[in-house]
């Protein structure tokens, strides 16, 4: 059976549901504390996940203190080895601060997740947004390889989720895009609230050039089941949710399940 390790930093708070959906996707998953480096090293996990939360209280900048923890040396090495690494929300912030994404020069910080920029408000935003994958992502990301071309609704919950880069890198970054914010039917996002944080190029998730590392701001683990989708949501997923039978509600996957299904598929193919 494939294995995954969820890394808990002080202040992480999504480790349990993240581990739960990985297990439900057929991946043997364990949670490791930030200081259980030896245990993690011995586990030789097939994939690593940095969950959401507020690691080290977002001191200095979200993700920056966790990025300096010794355990990240191991994650860094595994990323270079090509193992699938996923950072969700605060985990994504840690990956950016570790220089693993965009990862043109691994270890160098070449992007940032800045404060949300939205008209007339500041601070935290919880909402549901629509996401669409890129061709590159479906081709090379172990986390997105099972996605189709259609848009999926996924919840967000963050105050610093706006991807920003140097002006000179804007062209280069396009091939690192995993997911973009979009309209209900996959059309390009028309500003706020479709793009909920002002992220450049509507980026919701960013890969390293090899595709094995993915930093995603929305929370796919929170929409693993159909019953987690809001009944009033627009688009085909709303129809599916409102018309679902009791059986469907329990058994049908939610829009976020495909991320973990992607990993299971990838590990299945690559681990024989």
């Amino acid at each position: 059976m494939s294995t995954a390790a969820v890394i808990r930093f002080p202040g992480s708070n999504c480790e349990f549901e993240t581990a739960r959906v990985l297990r439900k996707s057929g991946i043997d998953t364990r949670i490791y504390n930030w200081n259980e480096i030896e245990k993690l090293s011995d586990s030789r996990a097939d994939a690593y996940i940095l969950p959401g939360g507020f690691s080290f209280q977002d001191r200095i900048r979200a993700g920056v203190v966790a990025a300096g923890e010794s355990i990240m040396d191991l994650i860094f090495q595994e990323a270079v080895n090509g193992k699938p690494i996923l950072g969700i929300c605060n985990g994504a912030q840690v990956l950016v601060e570790s220089g693993l994404v965009p990862g043109w020069k691994p270890g160098a910080i070449q992007g940032a997740l800045a404060s949300n920029l939205s008209p007339g408000r500041s601070g935290y935003l919880s909402d549901w947004v629509y996401l669409k994958s890129t061709d590159e992502a479906r081709e090379k990301s172990p986390w997105l390889c099972a996605l189709g071309q259609e848009a999926i609704p996924v919840p967000i919950a963050h105050a610093e989720g706006r991807f920003v880069f140097r002006e000179d890198d804007l062209d280069k970054v396009k091939s690192n895009i995993g997911l973009v914010y979009c309209g209900v039917n996959g059309e390009a996002a028309e500003g706020w609230p479709e793009n909920p944080n002002g992220s450049i190029l509507d980026i919701a998730a960013l890969m390293n050039p090899e595709g094995n590392v993915l930093a995603i701001m929305p929370h796919p683990e929170r929409c693993f089941h159909l019953w987690q989708v809001p009944p009033g949501i627009k688009g085909p997923w709303g129809e599916l949710r409102r018309n679902a039978s009791l059986k469907d509600l329990e058994e049908k996957p939610g829009p976020g399940a495909v991320v973990f299904k992607s990993l299971a598929k990838y590990l299945g193919e690559n681990n024989g």
């Binding site: 349990f16 601070g123 935290y124 919880s126 929370h219 683990e221 929170r222």
Partner: peptide, 13 residues
């Protein structure tokens, strides 16, 4: 509500 996280823990129906 838009400021509150009502979905952490993944058990919200």
């Amino acid at each position: 509500w838009s400021y509150y996280d009502s979905e952490v823990q993944g058990v919200t129906r």
